[in-house]
C-alpha cells in the first residue's frame, strides 16, 4: 500500500463512526446533493398532499377559459379544456412517483435475488440466467415495455409498474452478479463454508450485507431511469389511463399547440419531469460520491 493510501485508511482503523459522520457531513456540504434533496422533497410533498395542495380542482373543465396565459389566477395558465395546469402538475406527481418507485423496488428486489443466485452458484445456473438476461437486454427498456403493453391490452397502473419492474430486473441482476462474483472469492465465504453454513445463510447473511452499498446506489440510479421510462410511456400514450393528469400525457396532448404560441400547457409538465429526474439523479450522485470515498 502506498503511504498516501495508508494515510487515507489508517484512521479508519480506529474510528469507523467518524468516517460515517464525515460521510454525512460531506453530503450536507454538497450543493448538488442538497439541490437534489430539495427537488425530490418538493415533488414527494406534492404527491403526498395531492389535490389538497392544488389551488384548483385539477379535473374541473372550463372551456370558456381555455388556453389562458399564466397569471395570478392560473399560475401555469390553463390547458385546452380550461383546466388549471398548475394544479394538474402538482397532482400528476403522484402517479409517476408511485409507478417509478414501485417498479424500482420490484426490479431491485428481484434483480438482487437473481444476481445473488447467479453469481454465487455460477456454473449452469449462472449460464442460463445470464443468457436470458442478455436476451432481455438486447431490447431497449422502452421496447420491452411496449411489447408487454401491446400483449396485455390497456394495462392498469399496477401492471405498468410490474412491467417496468420486470424490465429492470435483468439490468440490476447483472450489476449485483458482478459484485457477488468478486465478493464470493473472498475468504470469509470459504470460512462460512468451513463452519458448515448452508447456501441461504451465505447468500443472505454473509454476502447480501456486503453488496448492499452498490445495490443502494443502483437503486437510486435506476429510479431516475424509471421516471424516464414512466414519463416516456405516458407521453407515447400507451401508459395508464390516458385521461389522468399525467405529466407525459399532458405534454403529448398539448405539444401541438406550441406552434400557436401556447407553450405553458406543455412546458410546465415537461419541466416537472425534468426537475424530478434531475433531482433523483443529483441525490444518486451525492450518494455515489459519499460512498466511494
Amino acid at each position: 500500500m502506498t503511504d498516501a493510501a495508508v494515510a487515507g485508511t489508517r484512521r479508519g482503523g480506529a474510528e469507523l463512526g467518524v468516517v460515517r459522520r464525515e460521510r454525512w457531513a460531506l453530503l450536507r456540504r454538497s450543493p448538488a446533493f442538497l439541490i437534489g434533496l430539495g427537488l425530490v422533497g418538493l415533488w414527494v410533498a406534492g404527491a403526498v398532499l395531492g389535490s389538497w395542495a392544488a389551488p384548483k380542482d385539477p379535473q374541473a373543465l372550463d372551456p370558456i377559459h381555455k388556453h389562458q396565459h399564466p397569471s395570478l389566477a392560473h399560475w401555469f395558465g390553463t390547458d385546452v379544456l380550461g383546466r388549471d395546469v398548475f394544479s394538474r402538475v402538482i397532482v400528476g406527481s403522484r402517479s409517476i412517483l408511485l409507478i417509478a418507485v414501485g417498479a424500482t423496488v420490484i426490479g431491485t428486489i428481484l434483480g438482487t435475488m437473481l444476481g445473488l443466485v447467479s453469481g454465487y452458484f455460477k456454473g449452469i445456473v449462472d449460464e442460463v440466467i445470464m443468457r436470458l438476461v442478455d436476451a432481455l437486454l438486447a431490447m431497449p427498456v422502452i421496447v420491452v415495455a411496449l411489447l408487454a403493453i401491446a400483449a396485455l391490452d390497456h394495462p392498469s397502473n399496477v401492471v405498468v409498474t410490474l412491467i417496468i419492474g420486470f424490465v429492470f430486473t435483468p439490468i440490476i441482476a447483472r450489476t449485483v452478479r458482478a459484485s457477488v462474483l468478486g465478493e464470493a472469492e473472498l475468504d470469509y465465504v470459504a470460512a462460512a463454508k468451513l463452519r458448515t453454513e448452508r447456501a441461504p445463510h451465505i447468500l443472505f447473511v454473509e454476502l447480501l450485507p456486503n453488496i448492499l452499498p452498490p445495490v443502494i446506489v443502483e437503486f437510486t440510479v435506476r429510479l431516475g431511469y424509471a421516471i424516464f421510462a414512466v414519463a416516456t410511456l405516458s407521453f407515447l400514450g400507451v401508459g395508464a389511463s390516458p385521461d389522468s393528469p399525467d405529466w407525459g400525457s399532458q405534454v403529448a396532448t398539448h405539444y401541438s399547440f406550441i406552434n400557436q404560441g401556447i407553450w405553458w400547457s406543455s412546458l410546465f409538465p415537461a419541466a416537472a419531469i425534468a426537475t424530478l429526474a434531475v433531482g433523483v439523479n443529483l441525490l444518486a450522485d451525492g450518494l455515489v460520491e459519499a460512498f466511494e470515498r
Partner: peptide, 16 residues
C-alpha cells in the same frame, strides 16, 4: 443529469 431527462422533454425545450 441531462441523461435522465427523457428525449421528448428535451425535444419540447428545443422546439420552444
Amino acid at each position: 443529469s441531462a441523461a435522465v431527462v427523457p428525449e421528448f422533454v428535451w425535444g419540447v425545450l428545443l422546439v420552444l
